[in-house]
Design a protein around this nucleic acid. Structure first.
Length: 800
RNA sequence: GCCCGGGUGGCGGAAUAGGUAGACGCACAGGACUUAAAAUCCUGCGGAAGGCGACUUCCUUACGGGUUCAAUUCCCGUUCCGGGCACCA
């Protein structure tokens, strides 16, 4: 029999998509299941092999759920705003709208050519007015709750892309997109106050099912630390200089203070400072450094003492010098620290370099050599009222002291910074804000605020958006007072549209609200969200923030959007390196589909290795999968007329149903497929098999290789397509073997095996163990010390 | 520097409430079918040694220790690879 996979796969794709097989039905009485994948950015390069791997896990789960009787929502869309499209458009002089539409069309066809069971009726495109209208709406809700604000600040600026970058997009001091070195630039830009949700985002992690490492990464990203703020006095003017510390208990060890170069007191008290010129010089030098250079850990400590300002330790009354140094960051805590060189490596290095006293306040360590930082436990010394206390008690006592004397209080700090919510680019959601000289920033509630269709979308000079050049866009009337005003010309960052797309899927065509509450109540939360490790911090935290906010606004019914999250491991190139165009080691999924068929590709991608681990592509490996599927294709030739399962296969069938089901739920697709191979190998060895035998295999295989299974199903005379065929049940009692192999060890070494009925008594097992010939040889002439019998498993004889 | 993963045949990888290491697949070798090749089917396949032989023995889960009747699995130390965070006070 010739199996023409191209023809067959096309046939079933046409059937499924034209018969609405994957349509999610609002308010259906079946239990709902919402499976989500990270929607793609429709790049010109089209679908990558990684996309298929990323989608295939939820694809298998969705198909299985449909067979289990669920009403499944498995949607797809396009996160289409962003730089690559815009850069491509500029280079080729084609409008990004045209490029985007073209790419989405290509992508859609490619997705369908793999037979993915998305509900294509709910497709969303973040760049369409009916979608970004609601992205703008959410922004305005944030603005009205003062969670969106404009601030004059230093920003990371990429001189090549001519855009301001979020810290997240410029890690390592280089632009995420082009790799250019990022420079610091002052600009007035929009921020979202995600920091107001720091604690909520932490607390939410307790109620969701994410892998431990995912939670840990989010916890680290948010970076909570508990400590205290303490007001030190400045001797010359009796003003406060407030510091944040996680170790208020070490306050007796403070021998100097350090402020960040940007700290306001330099300007404020400049009249007191006698070496102002030198300090200004240091400030300028620090400003020139990029964020990256400043955070290089191994570089020498630099700094300069402020002459004319002296700090006073509010606990001891001792006078201490104040330094400016760029190892203190302006954006964290108060931008000023109390330095305890005896117990902090950075302070220690600084103190050594500037010859400052080092006073240990916790017992242990040798401060002549290095800072003693292992101080979670220990006993306080040199600390007056804290002497002799444990670290924990000292913390409590000093905070109580600070609070009762109004010189400080308990304080929590987070590393996470507010979200820089702006791009100086054309291809993004316009920010619907009007700047009125009279009223200040005013929301433009007339949504959508359309992105004008312009010819010149190249970035403006000096970090301005190209929209700034369009007079008729910029110039407008203030909605409040009616006077002449100017429109915001920055657009939203790439992360905006993806921060709420999972909500829109629940009600994608709603023109009156971002999504109907009843529909959201029906579908949310997302039951299972699969995607890349690289989106675990940025995208996931941003979208959890938006969802939490919308919950507070009463617009969504759940706090946490994603009930369960799993992550995918990369498919590496044939050479074991990460696939990249520059290395020339990419694998084109369409070529593979063309050569082997979609089913083979789908199965191979999941068989290649552990789903969340990286694994190299192998052209040899895929052939084995092809052979397996072709063997299954031939089973219809050996069907007999009997009913039910063949007695010789029954046990294995029940076992396979159980294990394949479990493996799918535990994202262990590689072992699920290997168990299907084992079952099919058993079928091969049979003279003939029953139709029921075959149907079980087809049903278990259907989520992985659906085209082929449909074809066989039809060929053997079944009328109904397999999408809603019933997932097979198993009988627990029949998964257990009646006869068990028992291993016999002598002194821990395997010396033989025997078969015995399951649940045989210990006595019986022991008796049989001693009958094994090779066992007799090994215990000959020795004294039996002990016999360990583990029912249904093993007998170990200890003999000396 | 800190926090997570991971190290098993020629290769991708199985097996951990401790209990026959190497499932499944690839590659390779031998055989069947064929005029031939491809495809397919059968057999073997961690390493070493012994035996004509069914077999037997020793070694083997990065390295070194430990706990245990029994360790890929648990504990301690070392090392290498991957990811995340990083002068965060």
């Amino acid at each position: 029999m010739e199996y023409d996979f191209k023809k067959v796969e096309k046939k079933w794709q046409d059937y499924w998509y034209s018969h609405d097989c994957f349509k999610a039905i609002d308010f259906d009485s079946k239990p709902k299941y919402y499976a989500l994948i990270e929607f793609p950015y429709p790049s010109g390069a089209g679908m990558h092999i990684g996309h298929i791997k990323a989608y295939s896990s939820m694809e298998v789960v969705s198909r299985k759920r449909r067979m289990q009787g669920y009403n499944v929502l498995f949607p797809i869309g396009f996160d289409a705003y962003g730089l690559p499209t815009e850069n491509y458009a500029i280079k080729n002089n084609i409008h990004p709208r045209i490029v985007t539409d073209r790419n989405i069309l290509t992508f859609t066809n490619q997705l369908k050519s793999v037979g993915l069971s998305f509900d294509f009726d709910r497709v969303i495109d973040t760049t369409k007015e009916d979608y970004y209208k609601w992205t703008q709406y959410i922004f305005l809700r944030l603005f009205k709750k003062k969670l969106a604000y404009k601030s004059f600040t230093y920003v990371n600026y990429c001189p090549t892309c001519k855009v301001v970058l979020a810290n997240e997009d410029s890690q390592g001091g280089h632009c995420d997109r082009c790799g250019s070195e990022v420079i610091q630039k002052q600009k007035d830009v929009w921020f979202l106050k995600i920091t107001d949700y720091s604690q909520k985002l932490l607390d939410g992690l307790d109620e969701v099912d994410y892998p431990a490492r995912v939670k840990q990464e989010q916890i680290n990203w948010i970076g909570k630390s508990v400590g205290a703020e303490i007001n030190f006095k400045i001797k010359q003017n009796n003003e406060n200089l407030t510091v944040f510390t996680t170790r208020p208990d070490t306050v007796y060890g403070v021998t100097f203070m350090v402020i960040a170069p940007e700290h306001e007191i330099i300007e404020k008290y400049s009249s007191c400072i006698t070496n102002l010129d030198a300090i200004k010089e240091y400030q300028i030098a620090a400003q020139k450094k990029t964020e990256f250079q400043r955070t290089q850990i191994n570089k020498d400590k630099t700094g300069i003492k402020i002459e004319g300002l002296t700090g006073i330790n509010p606990i001891t009354g001792k006078e201490i010098p104040i330094y400016v140094a760029d190892y203190v960051m302006t954006g964290y805590g108060t931008g000023a620290i109390m330095a305890v060189p005896a117990h902090d490596t950075r302070d220690y290095e600084f103190a050594k370099k500037f010859n400052i006293d080092i006073i240990p306040v916790i017992e242990g360590g040798d401060i002549s050599k290095e800072a003693f930082t292992d101080i979670e436990t220990g006993t306080m010394i040199n600390s007056d009222i804290l002497n002799g206390l444990s670290v924990k008690d000292a913390k409590d006592k000093i905070i109580e002291y600070l609070e009762s004397n109004s010189i400080g209080h308990k304080m929590v700090n987070y590393k996470m910074k507010d979200w820089a919510f702006n791009r100086q680019r054309y291809w993004g959601e316009p920010i619907p804000i009007i700047n009125c000289p009279n009223c200040g920033y005013v929301s433009d509630d007339n949504l959508p605020l359309k992105l004008p269709y312009i010819e010149n979308f190249k970035p403006g000079n000096d970090g301005e958006s190209p929209l700034a050049d369009i007079k008729e866009y910029v110039n407008c009337k203030c909605p409040k007072c009616g006077k002449d005003a100017k429109r915001e010309t920055d657009t939203m960052p790439q992360w905006a549209g993806s921060s709420w797309y999972f909500l829109r899927y629940c009600d994608p065509r709603n023109d009156n609200e971002l999504a109907n509450m009843e529909k959201l109540k029906y579908w949310l939360p997302v039951d299972w969200y699969n995607g890349g490790m690289e989106h675990v911090t940025r995208h996931m935290i941003y979208s959890r923030f938006w969802n939490n906010f919308l919950f507070d606004e009463g617009l969504v019914p759940v706090k946490e959007p994603y009930k369960k999250r799993t992550c995918i491991g990369l498919i590496l190139g044939r050479d074991g390196q990460k696939m990249s165009k520059s290395l020339g080691n990419t694998v084109d999924p369409l070529e593979i589909v063309n050569e082997y068929g979609a089913d083979t590709l789908r199965v191979y991608i999941l068989f290649i290795g552990e789903y969340d681990q990286p694994a190299p592509w192998s052209d040899e490996g895929i052939k084995g999968v092809k052979r397996f599927l072709e063997r299954v294709l031939r089973f219809d030739e050996k069907l007999n007329d009997k009913e039910g399962y063949s007695p010789s296969l029954e046990n294995l069938i029940h076992k396979t149903i159980k294990e394949v089901g479990n493996d799918i739920e535990n994202i262990k697709f590689n072992t699920a497929i290997s168990k299907l191979m084992v079952l099919s190998n058993a079928y091969s060895k049979e003279e003939s098999i029953t139709k029921d035998d075959l149907m079980v295999l087809l049903k278990l295989l259907n989520p992985f290789a659906p085209h082929m299974c449909e074809e066989i199903n039809e060929k053997i005379g079944n009328k109904e397509c397999m999408v809603f065929s019933k997932w097979p049940d198993y009988d627990e009692a029949k998964t257990i073997d009646n006869e068990i192999d028992i291993a016999v060890q002598v002194n821990g070494k395997l010396r033989g095996t025997f078969k015995i009925a399951k649940d045989s008594s210990k006595e019986e097992m022991e008796r049989r163990a001693f009958e094994v010939e090779n066992v007799k040889v090994h215990i000959n002439g020795k004294e039996i010390k002990k016999v360990i019998v583990v029912p249904n498993k093993i007998v170990n004889i200890v003999a000396i």
